[in-house]
Design a protein around this nucleic acid. Structure first.
Lengths: 339, 339
DNA sequence: CTGTTAGCGCGTTCAA
DNA sequence: TTGAACGCGCTAACAG
């Protein structure tokens, strides 16, 4: 028994036709109970598994869905992928992951994948993608996750603007007036909406974001550290900085403390994401929590439903965020207190 | 032009047979130059892509390789996956990822994948897997990455024992005698070899690992924090602790500092992995660097070579590790110095 | 409820 | 060097 059993072998062993075997496996209810158990027995005895490739060719599906992330090395995505993976495992779909940072033309690579029929659906975590895409031929259902550049595409996202406002109001409540913002990469949708939320909450308090207090970043650790240098060089320093990602907040606080600056004594910091490490930093990072696993799960379910229905439309889902208070925020110009 | 072009369409457009089109695409050298360009032109004009599913069925391959990780949510794996993804992208293979924490029987799920012909090769990051596997029928090539439980299987790994010894000798050199070790989960291969390296280096100096100074962990942040509590409760505290992962080191230092203990003043810490955040912690973590991206790349190349050769054998590759000195280590029982 | 028939789209014989 | 024909393993029509 070197090579795997085929549906023919089962048909022979059970004394039925291959069609019946196929039905017994795919649509058990369409087959008489007696024959069904006959088939299932034969299957068990032989250790037969349906050949997904053949099934997929026949069904004109690929059996897997593709997740396109801007940077696989970024831990922010790992838990989302884990959520995706867990619901896809139930439905028997494979999870194909692609890193859009790799290779020359991310959008072209996406097209290749799709045109080659390699995915039944796509979850896109990179908002640059849908804009760069040439829509050649029919495409499988896609959902945008996290980043939301095209209002007409199905999406699972988080209230970024509201989250930013939550962060700012928290700082305001603690008495801060000079509040800075460390942004994501320019042009990014997330960057825009978190900035907008920041401005909005500030203006509600009659405040503005000083140009000096707007630090450009890219969501990565390194850019947080760079922002710290800029903060140090300022004559007129903000007493609090809201960072558009936890990684940046981490880099920011790290560099500050390495320079001997006390956080939150000299400057308060709020992050965004609530990645796992944030609770273990010193000081523990106050941040806006995104339900990352849930994002993955919802995106997967949305996509599966679309595939099922043969539709490329779906509602946009908006998931709530939450302020997590820890120790990186204190009133301005005082010695550190803990909450 | 609603549905994608097939090889038939190209054959018609180029005035040749489908066999010729197939050859022109898969084995260009076996076709006359004139006809080849005829075909390639038709391909370009129509935007034709070969249907991977059909090709795979015919070739009896699946076109993708599977990476099985113990916990997708663990950022340690993200960069490795990124390395895998980049070399697989070149060869046109898809990267399927599976989380072995999901679902009831990880080994059974692996078998399902393979028996269903869903992967041409597997990279396994979870050493529990090969042990639990029932080898039903022919299996595609597999390589063990990072964890190395079966000497006879191809593997890409790192010198864990040597790395641990590096860490311990560094601590020894700085004057520490009472050195503790925070381990990975029990039964894990990595846990064993890092512990062995620790013991080895200690014994070279005529020292032993006190039972009290052996802290059980699981590689995760939380277990680092728990170890800190145990450390605090000790009458006879080690002046340095070598942690088997950076995440644990991070949790350990965090909890210690939250409790008001100075690191490295009161206790020095060395980690293992050199994850990105380690350089940004306070104090910046001294650690043993693993070439994570390289691990992924090598594993991918090894696997591709095996698939190419139709072999399930390959050499075991051993990648070097490196001590990265930062600020979490100081001489024992003094006020903090920085190196 | 079940069997027969006919492909899914491609790669590979075997002749020409 | 090229084309005709077959089949990879499975499922969807259509009869019966």
């Amino acid at each position: 028994m070197r090579k795997p059993a085929t549906i023919q072998d089962i048909a022979r062993a059970a004394g039925v036709s291959t069609a019946t075997v196929s039905r017994a496996l795919s649509h058990p209810e369409r087959v008489a109970e007696a024959t069904r158990s006959l088939v299932l027995d034969a299957v068990r005895r032989s250790g037969y598994r349906v050949n997904r490739t053949a099934r997929n060719l026949r069904r004109r599906r690929s059996g897997s869905i593709l997740a396109l992330v801007p940077n696989l090395a970024n831990p922010f995505f790992s838990e989302i992928l884990s959520g995706l993976s867990s619901v896809l495992a139930e439905s028997g779909h494979g999870l194909l992951v692609g890193d859009t940072h790799i290779g020359p033309h991310p959008a072209a690579r996406l097209n290749d994948y799709l045109a080659a029929g390699m995915a039944d659906g796509v979850v896109i975590f990179d908002s640059r993608l849908p804009d760069g895409m040439v829509f050649e031929g029919a495409r499988p259902p896609m959902v945008l996750a996290c980043e939301w550049s095209r209002p007409n595409l199905p999406s699972v996202r988080v209230d970024n603007e509201g989250g930013a406002a939550l962060a700012i109001r928290h700082l305001l409540r603690r008495g801060h007036r000079a509040i800075g913002h460390l942004t994501g990469p320019s042009g990014n949708v997330l960057t825009e909406s978190r900035l907008a939320g920041t401005r909005q909450a500030l203006s509600e308090a009659g405040l503005k974001l000083a140009p000096d207090h707007l630090f450009p970043g890219d969501f990565g650790l390194g850019s947080g550290a760079s922002a710290a240098e800029r903060w140090l060089a300022l004559r007129d320093r903000p007493t609090a900085v809201f960072c558009a990602s936890d990684e940046m907040a981490c880099g920011f606080m790290g560099a500050l403390r390495h320079a001997g600056i006390d956080v939150p004594g000299a400057v308060s910091v709020v992050g965004f994401d609530d990645i796992e490490v944030s609770a273990h930093l010193v000081p523990a990072l106050t941040t806006i929590r995104q339900p990352r696993r849930l994002i993955g799960e919802r995106a997967a379910r949305l996509l599966l439903a679309m595939i099922e229905a043969g539709s490329s439309q779906a509602p946009a889902e908006l998931l709530p965020v939450q302020l997590i208070e820890r120790q990186s925020v204190a009133p301005p110009a005082t010695t550190p207190l803990d909450g």
